[in-house]
Design a binder for these strands. Structure first.
Length: 425
RNA sequence: GUGAAAGUAGCUCAGUUGGUUAGAGCAUCAGAUUGUGGUUCUGAGGGCCGGGGGUUCGAGUCCCCUCUUUCACCCCA
């Protein structure tokens, strides 16, 4: 009986692992150069932690288990609750602002489809303790910094930015009651995926008043902050939200990534905890699901039992990103070829121990080195060397009797005899 | 959880109205070459045709069930 891999999981053979490492290394490098520090937490947490903000529907999408002590646990489906817990625990001793990143392995018991698996990796960056939308801008900048680094341009991808704060203010200013906001958010979030007529129909169901629903429709097609300002009955909360939104774009312009960023009133983000700036990065064609998303969540730490501290962050999964990079041909191009420094070949069984000794010598000096387990024909061993992408090949033959070995440069093909003492030096 | 399509070698796929022993390319291994790689040539291994049941003299092929994958919903933290 053969055992299959679990639904929605991936096996990382060396080939896939190389791709994965390249992606993760890039995430880490960009995080560090933007001043973020790495953290991690346990891969499972109390189930309760995910029920706090999300309710029972989410629990059905979790892998949960009961341990032998009767504790209800869940494999982590996201990193933010763990982050909130960790930050809350040491909030008084952590220097502010907190700029942390992580690349957690996450699990969601959803049905797998394109760009969405049951086990995946997600790059998270968060800035905690900063009110100013400059922090939101820096999160967005860091995100773009990575995407730009791997070769995506502003014609490949777009960062769509909006504001929950403004959206709430706008909807209330045109007469939508507070308790309706959630339903409207869900609808607006979906709008891009719906055929035009269907969206209007659904909107009328939610908002029977034609003048009000008309205003929402107008709002959704606007392309600039100035235009939506004109639609809004001005009041204090919408004014400050618009100012924040404007500032984010100004900062992003100063940071040199303005051409990636556009205002998009349809960006709402799924769940409840966002409070301010929200954004998603999409491929320009709109073929794939969002590459990443994020925003400001000023109430979350408090909701997890901590003090009221503002926070903003971003999460980027590895699945959609990899699909996009592959489609754009950016993976093959940039992936470093696996290679070793030396391959040690020997022409006869009698030199085997010499070969082993020299290989170990190289390794102890910090060079990567391999040798053949069998005294195969030299052409076979050289083939092994080139299959392994060895930069140089050492050939041990008769010359070793007079303390010499051949060093062959595998790219140029040049070969020279080197004295053993000289080689060891 | 709902719906649709597809599963033949490690991978990409052929396989005649149902008819002998299921094929190719790539990949792997070995040989052509007694001390020189990437090319080429030759050969080999590798398959319960996803699994189970049914129809039939006979099933990779037709029917039913199931599993898996892909796609679309739900959801998207």
């Amino acid at each position: 009986m053969t055992i299959q891999p679990v639904k929605g999981t991936r096996d990382f053979y060396p080939r896939e692992m190389a791709v994965h490492n390249w992606i993760v290394d890039g995430w880490k490098k960009i995080s560090l150069r933007n001043g973020f520090e790495e953290y991690d937490g346990p891969i499972f947490e109390y189930l309760k932690m995910y029920q706090v903000k999300s309710g029972d529907e989410i629990v059905e999408q979790l892998f949960s288990l009961t341990d032998r002590g009767g504790r209800d646990l869940a494999l982590r489906p996201e990193m933010t609750p763990t982050l909130a817990r960790m930050v809350n625990q040491q909030i008084n001793s952590l220097p502010k602002p907190i700029k942390w990143f992580s690349v957690p392995r996450l699990f969601r018991a959803e049905r797998p489809q394109k760009g969405r698996l049951r086990e995946f990796f997600q790059w998270n960056i968060d800035i905690i303790g900063v009110d100013d939308v400059l922090a939101d801008a820096e999160v967005i900048f860091t995100t773009i910094d990575y995407l730009r680094q791997v070769g995506l341009t502003s014609t490949d991808i777009k960062v769509k930015i909006s504001s929950r704060e403004f959206l709430a203010g706008f909807l209330k200013s045109i007469g939508i009651p507070e308790e309706k906001l959630g339903d409207i958010y869900v609808l607006l979030d979906k709008s891009a995926k719906l055929p035009p007529g269907v969206f209007e129909e659904l909107l009328r169901e939610q908002v029977p008043d034609k003048t009000i629903s008309g205003k929402i429709l107008d709002f959704m097609v606007e392309q600039s902050i100035e235009q939506v300002r004109d639609l809004t009955a001005p009041n204090e909360s919408t004014e400050s939200a618009l100012e924040n939104l404007g500032n984010v774009f100004n900062y992003l312009e100063s940071m040199g990534v303005g051409d990636f960023c556009i205002f998009n009133p349809g960006i709402v983000r799924g769940l409840a905890y966002y409070t301010g700036i929200v954004f998603e990065v999409h491929d320009a064609v709109g073929e794939l699901r969002a590459i990443c998303g994020g925003g400001r969540y000023d109430n979350l730490l408090k909701d997890f039992g901590g003090p009221s501290i503002p926070a903003t962050g971003m999460g980027m999964g590895d699945c959609v990103l990899e699909i996009l990079l592959r489609e754009k041909g950016l993976l093959e191009k940039q992936l470093p070829a696996g290679s070793i420094d030396y391959f040690v070949a020997y022409v006869d069984e009698s030199y085997k121990n010499q070969a082993i000794r020299i290989t170990m010598e190289l390794r102890s000096k910090g060079c990567s080195a391999n040798f053949s387990y069998k005294a195969a024909k030299l052409n076979k061993q050289l083939k092994q060397a080139s299959d392994q992408n060895a930069r140089k090949c050492i050939i041990i033959g008769q010359e070793i009797e007079s303390n010499q070995l051949a060093v062959k440069d595998m790219t140029s093909g040049e070969q020279k005899l080197v004295n053993l003492d000289e080689f060891n030096a």
